[in-house]
């Protein structure tokens, strides 16, 4: 069977990574290529680069950065942030991105998923969903959790799969940044309703949290940022721990 994946996420602004201050053994933690290579060497299965730029100039810098990443990194990587048209996706594919993730733009215009998947294949399209619990339902938010929509999580994820998304990247906005662990029941329910892989994001504070979401939560992959960037644990240490607990990982 396919191994569970561990995916460090790097935030990029104006061509530089913006976290990672305690990363050991690296000359320039702001260099997105160098940091990505270090994660790959530790055993990361994939990387996600998230463009948090605000201006067009910064966005162009990101595109040339993606070109450098593609040339230097020998594992798959996804890029996300600000992709709202098929032309944005094409531009990133042309410079070597393996996958793109779309979020708010897909909520606004669901046909974008079909359009990109038809042209470039489902393997290229990751549908990122930010969900928030309201009463007893999970609703979709956009714009980094600032705007609540009326779309319900499970219906939207199923729609995304039908439209051609190759993977779902789910962040629970109630857990993101808390380091209290992932909502495993939510992930288990989502995984049982979909046939495409689900990546769990937001909430990892410990090895146990990640082990739980990959076992109890049935997630296919775990994405995390701060636990790696601040040097609390390396990807290699994490994966060895997961293996000890009987979770299949690539060592």
């Amino acid at each position: 069977m396919v191994a569970k994946r561990i995916i460090p996420c790097l935030d990029v602004k104006d061509g530089r990574t913006v976290k990672g201050i305690n990363f050991v053994g690296l000359h320039d933690v702001g260099d997105a290529v160098e940091l990505g290579k270090a994660y790959a060497a530790q055993g990361a299965d994939e990387l996600v680069y998230l463009d948090i730029s605000a201006t067009v100039e910064e966005r162009n810098t990101f595109t040339s950065l993606v070109e450098r990443i593609a040339l230097n990194i020998n594992i798959p990587f996804t890029v996300g942030g600000g992709i709202s048209t098929i032309d944005d996706a094409a531009r990133l594919l042309d410079v070597g991105a393996d996958k793109i993730s779309i979020n708010s733009a897909a909520v606004r215009n669901p046909g974008l998923i079909d359009e990109i998947a038809r042209k470039y294949g489902s393997q290229f399209v990751v549908l990122a969903i930010d969900a928030k619990k309201v009463d007893d339902k999970y609703l979709i938010t956009t714009h980094g959790g600032r705007q609540l929509t009326e779309r319900e999580l499970f219906a939207w994820a199923r729609e995304g799969e039908q439209r051609g998304a190759g993977e779902i990247l789910l962040t629970s906005m109630d857990h993101d940044g808390t380091r209290d662990g992932y909502p495993c029941e939510l992930f288990a329910k989502l995984c049982s309703e979909l046939s495409i892989p689900v990546i769990a994001s937001g909430g990892a504070g410990s090895v146990k949290d990640i082990a739980d979401v990959l076992s109890v939560g049935c997630a296919d992959a775990a994405l995390a940022a701060s636990i790696f960037h601040y040097g609390e644990i390396t990807v290699g240490e994490l994966k060895r721990e997961l293996k000890k607990q009987g979770i299949k990982v690539r060592i």
């Binding site: 069977m1 396919v2 191994a3 994946r5 299965d45 489902s122 393997q123 190759g166 993977e167 995984c191 049982s192 046939s195 495409i196 892989p197 049935c218 296919d220 992959a221 690539r250």
Partner: peptide, 17 residues
């Protein structure tokens, strides 16, 4: 053929032996 009970997903995506 996807099979949720056995964790078989389609597409087969990721690292395998």
């Amino acid at each position: 053929v996807p099979d949720a009970s056995k964790g078989v997903k389609v597409p087969h995506m990721g690292w395998n032996e």
